[in-house]
Design a protein around this nucleic acid. Structure first.
Length: 588
RNA sequence: CUCCCCGUAGUUCAAUGGAUAGAACGGGCGCCUCCUAAGCGCCAGAUGUGGGUUCGAUUCCCGCCGGGGAGACCA
């Protein structure tokens, strides 16, 4: 089976190793595809690895390994080269057989069982529903969606989850911001809009909807709204005292709003939350990003899980009280300082609900839990893992993938990404300007832990030069050829693939066989970008071949074989692009 | 001050400790009477710096220089 060439070679080497050096039989066998075709189809550095333990010349070891290598129809040559590499040349039939494998299994080509059907949760985006998603969220969304699809393809049972921060101060600030805009639109004067409230136009839109639905029901006098507030300092002041006063002022406004509105506060709060959540969900759906579970932070409080998690930590002796607050002794688990879980005023911290959330994740029985976080959250890893360890849960089941920020440049200047200031490029704008496919692919083309300079003007102007079109174009070309060929695709299974013997065809066949390896490696490294790079290489090999050889030749046998290979290329592009969430148009 | 991420062609990015460090864009020169020129071929161009580990280092370790991020009884 062409799909198993690598494991076949590994098995052969294992046998040779056992007879040459039984004492080192556990040495991991690494096979790589050499860059240089003159180094064969696969190469191993096994002899060089053994040189250390056997204390012998690597080339001698290589020779003995080659001598002991069991014969195989797949291998036409095993040569010793360089400092002690063993280079394997594969039978051309074994290479081109990949074409029929691809066509036979279709959408399933490349699927792996590496995940063993284990349950894995991928939690991503999880942005506060306090405003539109921006370009940074888009990166997390694209990465998470691609990673989830990749893991599913690699044999994992995947749950995609969005953690909704619907409890806490940020939601209160959004609600009060909406209400203040509403009051202004209703003609209530004399209330300055707080500079630390949410400034975006979408807040005004939500306020207008309140008027449309309920008229002046939520109007309250300005004096009552401002009663007891400390007022705002001079806008130009940026000292700590002024900052604190602004926050106090905002908190006082929130407190007044709750009192003045009574039960109606819940409506305003819920209205803002529902609107923003629906907006984000719609945005993500359009971006091809779907979630299986939308998990409410508030539910953790409602079900008492936060309290239970804290109690559990207390029972196990990991908490202490200092200055009226409850602290978790996270330093015992490698954190740099202890952390508060319950404040002096009795309120739980964000960290407390996070502990509860992770406890919940573990109780749901996932074999592996992956959190995709912005890089600014890296400091939270030790405390969350510490909490898991304190709860006698295995911290290693949790893997945190940090996504570096996308720094956006517009007109050569760094664009602000602050949600509160209302000055940001939204994901929706980016999608509209660049297109969903190009967006998804552009994000996928970067390693997630790599800083990303996103020049918006460049991305827009380069739309036609985006590599995504290069791959889509290869797909469209195959579609066009198949249409002009006009045969029944079922015939392709009967193609005589031995006719594909030019160097370009063998290189392309070899590339086709690489796909399953790319899937496994990418899944192992949580690195879907590897698929994007592979697809670029695949498309390049195809375009080169397309320009060099004609597929629809007169010779019926050769024509069938070439069309079959083109169809295999198309199939792999589809399988790969499906993981990346990018469409494959049949014509361009 | 402490910690984290990152320094690779002019630019944006690749490279499980392997052989001659790969692409793309930009620059130069060619290719459409031929299945889609959103394509192909060729040329020029790079590992910040100083040590260490070893058969071998872009990769691992330490120093320095440079860029980004984090430090709360905030979320």
């Amino acid at each position: 089976m062409a799909q198993d060439v690598k494991s076949e070679l590994t098995a052969l080497l294992q046998q040779a190793l056992s007879s040459v050096a039984p004492e080192a039989a556990g040495t991991p066998i690494l096979l790589e595809r050499p860059r240089d075709p003159s180094h064969g189809d696969f190469a191993t550095n096994l002899a060089m690895q053994l040189a250390r333990t056997l204390k012998k010349n690597p080339r001698d070891i290589a020779q003995r390994l080659v001598n002991e290598l069991p014969p195989s129809p797949l291998v036409t040559a095993a040569e010793i080269a360089g400092a002690g590499f063993i280079n394997f040349r594969l039978d051309t039939g074994a290479k081109t057989a990949t074409v029929s494998t691809v066509l036979a299994v279709g959408d399933e080509y490349g699927r792996s069982r590496a995940g063993g059907n284990q349950k894995v949760q991928v939690e991503f985006v999880s942005a506060n529903p306090t405003g539109p998603l921006h370009v940074g969220h888009g990166r997390g969304a694209a990465y998470g969606a691609s990673l989830a699809a990749l893991l599913a393809f690699a044999g994992w049972d995947v749950t995609r989850e969005y953690y909704v921060n619907d409890a806490g101060r940020q939601m209160d600030i959004l609600a009060v911001s909406t209400w203040l805009r509403y009051l202004d639109q209703q003609g209530v004067t004399g209330i300055a809009f707080p500079p630390n409230g949410y400034q975006g136009d979408y807040v005004r839109d939500m306020a207008r909807q309140m008027t449309i639905a309920h008229g002046d029901q939520y109007v309250r006098p300005a004096e009552a709204v401002l009663a007891g507030t400390p007022g705002l300092p001079e806008p130009t002041r940026a000292d700590d005292e002024a900052k604190k006063q602004r926050e106090d002022h905002l908190d006082a406004l929130i407190a007044n709003a709750k009192t003045l509105l009574g039960p109606d506060w819940a409506y305003v709060h819920q209205h803002a939350l529902a609107e923003q959540l629906a907006d984000g969900r719609n945005d993500l759906e359009e971006f091809g990003v779907h979630f299986d579970v939308w998990f409410s932070e508030k539910s953790l409080f409602d079900t008492g899980l936060v309290a239970r998690a804290v109690e559990l930590l207390e029972q196990k002796g990991h908490l202490y009280v200092q200055a009226g607050a409850k602290w978790f002794r996270s330093t015992v688990f490698g954190d740099e300082k202890d952390r508060v879980v319950q404040r002096e005023n009795g309120l739980y911290t964000y960290f407390a609900s996070d502990i509860a959330y992770h406890l919940n994740k573990y109780e749901r029985g996932f074999d592996k839990v992956i959190n995709i976080w912005g890089a600014d959250h890296h400091g939270y890893i030790p405390r969350v893992k510490g909490a898991l360890a304190a709860l006698d849960l295995d911290p290693d089941k949790l893997q945190v993938a940090l996504v570096q920020f996308a720094v956006l440049y517009r007109n050569g200047q760094k664009a602000s990404m602050s949600t509160r200031s209302g000055e940001f490029v939204t994901l929706r704008e980016l999608r509209g300007e660049v297109g969903n496919d190009a967006c998804r692919f552009f994000y996928a083309l970067r390693k997630s832990d790599q800083h990303l300079d996103f020049d918006l003007d460049l991305a827009k102007s380069q739309t036609n030069e985006n590599p995504v079109y290069y791959i889509q174009y290869a797909h469209a070309r195959v579609c066009s050829v198949l249409a002009q060929w006009g045969g029944d695709e079922a015939e392709l299974a009967g193609a005589d693939l031995a006719l594909l013997d030019s160097p370009r065809e063998l290189a392309l066949a070899s590339r086709l066989g690489e796909f399953p390896e790319v899937i496994e490696a990418a899944a192992r490294d949580l690195a879907p970008h590897q698929i994007a790079f592979y697809l670029k290489d695949l498309a390049a090999d195809f375009h080169t071949w397309y320009n060099a050889e004609r597929m629809l030749v007169d010779d019926a046998g050769l024509r069938l074989a070439r069309v079959a290979m083109a169809a295999a290329v198309r199939q792999i592009i589809r399988n790969g692009m499906a993981i990346l969430g990018v469409s494959c148009p049949t014509s361009m």
